[in-house]
């Protein structure tokens, strides 16, 4: 008996929270520099360019691409095993369960577009470095802005609700009280991160 399902599920859980959570925080942190103006964001982006190319590429592959592909592909498999029923059983946790899957579907499409256009096409193929000016130009289209804000909200909710379910899945929070406390705290974090996102996205428009 080698419990493949068990280890893949637990890997999926920890990969989403620890690895992709870090990726999300890095994105929010770097992008929030836009609040302090073009120079601050460009400075932060140039700082990342200081990391030697092979190490940077290794981090992108091992720290983002592989965990993301694994989490997304196995996540689709998990999402397909659910028959969402929040219309009949409209409890808070069940609504979050449904939302966790809806945000996942949106993120799969959004991230193919986001990574495909900005990382692979713009930075990879055309060789244009990502800068404040490039993003500001990109965000002139209101449809892009709306889809990006939704993408961020989806990722933030998926991550924060993931904290709550991670604690249940790993048996960290057992009783309803501790589960509720973690749920309230993670939804608080969700609200804060969404506000930060709105602030730095808004800074491109003013």
């Amino acid at each position: 008996m080698f419990h493949t399902t068990f280890y893949i599920r637990r890997l999926h859980s920890i990969c989403g929270l620890a690895v992709l959570g870090m990726v999300l925080f890095e994105h929010i942190f770097t992008n929030s520099m836009a609040i302090f103006g073009p120079a601050a964001l460009n400075g932060a982006l140039e700082m990342m360019e200081l990391i030697p190319k092979p190490i940077f590429l290794g981090l992108e592959l091992g720290g983002i691409a592989i965990p993301l592909l694994f989490h997304a592909i196995y996540g689709v498999y998990i999402a397909l095993q659910a028959n969402n029923n929040a219309s009949n059983y409209g409890y808070c946790r069940n609504r979050n369960f449904t939302l966790q899957r809806w945000t996942a579907w949106y993120l799969v499409i959004f991230l193919i577009w986001h990574v495909g256009y900005l990382r692979l096409y713009t930075k990879g193929i055309t060789g244009t470095p990502i800068s404040y000016e490039l993003l500001q130009n990109y965000f002139q289209n209101p449809v892009v802005v709306v889809l990006y804000v939704l993408g961020m909200f989806a990722a933030i909710f998926h991550f924060c609700n993931g904290i709550t379910t991670f604690c249940m899945t790993w048996g960290i929070t057992k009783g309803p009280r501790s589960q509720n406390v973690v749920s309230v705290l993670s939804m608080g974090l969700c609200a804060i991160l969404c506000l930060i996102t709105l602030t730095f996205m808004g800074s491109y428009l003013i």
Binding site: T5, F6, I78, Q81, N85, R93, N94, F97, M168
Partner: peptide, 8 residues
């Protein structure tokens, strides 16, 4: 491991 924590 198939539990999705919907808590229904």
């Amino acid at each position: 491991t198939s539990c999705g924590n919907s808590q229904n």
